[in-house]
């Protein structure tokens, strides 16, 4: 098992390195002079020179890269052009909100996705099956930025049950979480359904019944654990995707999370912030996927021993 984990960790390192290189080169891929782009067309030559100095663009490329990587590892992502505050600090201030929404959405999506999937599988080819599958198909196709507006329209503006925007109280989290989780819920429901249908046909389910186990033990323990394995992978991979999805949802509900922060930075060309936020989200995504792989190995003995 340990070897499996170490192996996976080693596979991830080049990807992390690649991400860093790509994020680093963002600044250098900007057409024209990034310093000029950043400070604006009317800026004086001095201002441009100063921006160039701040961005470290005057130093040799390899030196820039190594200091970027070294600083990033130390947790230093530079300073925001707009606020002059350290990017790391700005990110850390906003990260908890984003993580709360992403975790909330994961729990929402997992719980309801599995529930719908199991209901559909047990009622195979009956009404419950059809209904849950239509819901999941719609939830997969509806863009989150539209779903969010629809929910806001119905639950906030018409019914007045929930607040519209901002994130000041826990109740404010409900709509962003549902909006963000809906798509993953649909996917998880589909996977759970097909996984359960497949597993329920297996010989060992017949064995479990032949042992005289109650049907709920057969379904929720013997079948579910087997159906769970592929679902866990999806949940994990989705969680990383959800982190990126918060970008859109935070914009819909005007939530001051890391996603909104990133979009604002792109709009005002605050490149250190753009680089920092992109790096944080991408690295989290890779690390979460690594974790998912390891959990997958723990759950399924077949993965470990082959």
């Amino acid at each position: 098992m340990l070897r499996f984990i170490i192996n996976r960790i080693f596979q991830v390192i080049p990807v992390l390195l690649g991400i860093t290189i790509l994020v680093f080169s963002m600044l250098h891929l900007i057409p024209g002079d990034p310093a000029r782009t950043m400070v604006g067309i009317e800026a004086s030559a001095e201002q441009i020179e100063q921006a160039r100095e701040e961005l470290g663009l005057n130093r040799p490329l390899h030196e820039q890269f190594f200091s970027f990587v070294g600083n990033a590892i130390k947790g230093d992502l530079g300073e925001s052009i707009r606020t002059s505050l350290p990017v790391t600090e700005e990110i850390l201030n906003r990260l908890p909100i984003t993580i709360n929404i992403a975790i909330g959405a994961t729990i929402f999506a997992t719980f309801f996705g599995m529930l719908f999937g199991i209901i559909a599988a047990i009622n195979h080819n009956k009404f419950g099956d059809g209904l849950t599958m239509v819901i999941s198909l719609l939830s997969v196709s509806t863009p989150s930025y539209f779903l969010g507006l629809l929910l806001m329209l119905v639950f906030s503006l018409h019914l007045g049950w929930l607040p519209t925007i901002g994130i000041s109280t826990p109740i404010h989290y409900i709509l962003p979480i549902v909006t963000l989780g809906a798509q993953a819920m649909g996917l998880i429901a589909r996977m759970t359904r097909s996984g359960m249908l497949d597993v329920l046909r297996q010989d060992y389910i017949r064995t479990a019944r032949a042992k005289g186990l109650p049907e709920r033990v057969v379904i929720y323990i013997h079948a579910f654990k087997n159906a769970l394995i592929p679902v866990v992978t999806v949940v994990g991979l989705r969680f990383g995707g959800l982190l990126a999805g918060t970008v859109l949802v935070e914009s819909v509900f005007a939530v001051p999370g890391i996603g909104r922060f990133m979009v604002e930075a792109v709009l005002i060309r605050d490149y250190p912030v753009v680089q920092g936020t992109v790096l944080v989200v991408a690295v989290s995504f890779v690390l979460i996927n690594l974790l998912v792989d390891i959990i997958y190995g723990l759950l399924d003995p077949r993965v470990r021993y082959t």
Binding site: V15, L22, I30, A244, F285
Partner: peptide, 23 residues
């Protein structure tokens, strides 16, 4: 490897990063 790295940027993030570069 290059493709893997592109895939390491989840969902819309890659598109945002590209727009950040290109405008």
């Amino acid at each position: 490897r290059f493709v893997d790295i592109l895939l390491a940027f989840p969902g819309i993030l890659l598109a945002i990063a590209i727009v950040a570069i290109l405008g």
